[in-house]
Nucleic acid binder design. Structure first.
Lengths: 194, 194, 194, 194
DNA sequence: CATGAATGAGAGTTCATTCAT
DNA sequence: GATGAATGAACTCTCATTCAT
């Protein structure tokens, strides 16, 4: 595949992302993507076979970029509490951002595609997030910033709460205040005052 | 609509439930339900106009039955801790029951139908569950069974964790052990040993 | 058929008439009529087999009533010119009455049902109208009210103009002024000043 | 849409025309046209959305061709009487041509689609025909070919008679002799002997 | 006589996918 | 590589008509 096609491939994925954000996963047809990209019907098939394949690639791109953002935000002189707070604020932003998230599409995708454990990007992301938070809490506890008996358990608890908030945001709706309340609850349980 | 059709209506809803359990919400067509019920194409339309309507009715039935089960389990001589434990065990069972749950379909349904706050059964259920748990924790705290500073906050936290577990079960998959671990974590935070 | 069924039959025809006025002929389904009559689906079939049959009967009723109205209007002391004028005014009213006419339905019906010459109520009505007008003109000419060389030809001409106005009213639309203009033109050609 | 599809588009319209001639307007389904064209179900939808759209285009084509025929027939040395006679003979042919006319379909179409005054091809055609006839009669009167007091009125009268004949041909049926009779009547009223 | 549940044919419409150019 | 016309399967929905009660 030449330089040109790499460009086009990327263009398709970026455009498709918008479509998925708008419509979720299942509702999106190859036709939708063709039209959004303003390419030919057959043209899309030169690059991708179906919407699942496209979506997987979109998620790959997405998670790379997310990682980059996260890495950047960890600076030398930030305390564990700072970073945890930052992380939670990021999550809050994501949660409440109704109109520029793949969240719904991702859930739908995993509903449809029971890919088991392999290739489950979502699971990898969840597990790695747990580890990072655990590390943070450990560090913070060692520094005397937090108080925590079961760091791993707490990390997991935090992640499940966040998942719960995320899905609630998509189904029953959730206010900024409700998110704040939950974050505060977490912080208090770590002995912080938010 | 006579006695007979009430029966048939119920039969359709029960059959449709199975279809939704199998396929989620979006994938289900009127044709799927027609075939599952072994009735005629037009016959289904005598009772329901579209899959959304059917699904709403299925959920209504479902939540009535769930309420019944729950009410029954609250006996005179059960302690708050007993009931809370029972509730969590029920949730665990539901969580792990992969092949007989509407969970996925429900999520999909609410993705598609942004019904706002009215008619959102899910929200009503969530809120009422929070209240019940709060009450339980209060009672338990008064009785000296638990220790808890912020009963409402804890109740909410529990529910969000459960939501997080539920969606995780549907997307990244979750083991019985993982659920136990989270339940234990909750109980410990209440000063119980599970 | 008992007294009761005769009543019901008539009720159905009267209700069906309204439906045909509203929707024309082709668009009307047995279901439409069932619903308008608020009777059972099967019930309608006890009286009529299809919409064509119903429509024919509606027309029969209609033409009986129209004849009655017309007969009544011919009084002893009316001049030929009076009666002709009256007839033309009646036609004008009918033409412009957009929302209580079977006209459209009748045309549609005859489009669909090429019943040849037998049973063609429309043709019978047309021919008899020509005869009546011819008679009127003859009488009027004898009385010196009109001037006319070819009475039969004039009568036919008048009827075709009226047909042309009727169909135009249903297709390209027509104003009261346009109808008046045509009536005046006819009267002038008879040596009258309208 | 390339060169090729323009051809196909035209092919579809021509084939659809035959279907409309056969069946009128309302009865015609997309399926009918698909089958007549021997193309695929989806194929037709690439070109047209529904039968109304197709019919409008068929009429457009039709009226273009009709205009061409008419223009051709007006030669340098023809007298007004010649042209008027020719026009009436054309109309007669059209009237009596039972099996190759869109007439019925056109009426049905305008029954269904109360397009008001805009886009009403029929009205435009009627009005323009009136003007042409008026001009002819004026010219003929100036030349001493005809005698006529109210040229515009006469032109309108002729057109309404023709409309009346046209609809009568479709509903009550009409013979060649009847048409001749009416044409003769018109010509006589212009002082011609036909 | 009357009801209305039930059936099944058939119309409209949309897309994934292919393939000649 | 790229196009977009073409196909056909699949879905939704509506009714005429029948028939057990």
């Amino acid at each position: 595949m030449g330089e040109k096609s790499v460009q086009k491939r990327k263009f398709i994925l970026e455009t498709a992302r918008k479509v998925f954000v708008d419509k979720g996963f299942k509702k999106v047809t190859m036709k939708d993507i063709v039209e959004a990209c303003e390419i030919s019907r057959g043209g899309l098939y030169l690059y991708f076979d179906n919407t699942s394949q496209i979506f997987l690639e979109v998620m790959k791109l997405e998670s790379q970029e997310a990682d980059d953002v996260f890495s950047d935000s960890i600076t030398e002189d930030a305390t564990a509490a700072d970073i945890l707070l930052l992380f939670l604020q990021e999550q809050k932003k994501e949660l409440l951002r109704k109109n520029d998230t793949l969240t719904q599409a991702i859930y739908e995708f995993y509903f449809q595609n029971q890919l088991g454990k392999k290739d489950n990007i979502l699971k990898r992301q969840f597990d790695s997030a747990v580890k990072i938070i655990e590390k943070l809490i450990e560090t913070g506890t060692d520094n005397g910033e937090f108080y925590c008996e079961d760091c791993k358990g707490t990390a997991r608890n935090i992640m499940f709460v966040l998942e719960g908030l995320k899905i609630s945001a998509q189904t029953i709706g959730i206010t900024a205040e409700a998110v704040d309340r939950e974050i505060l609850f977490i912080l208090k349980s770590l002995g912080l005052e938010g």
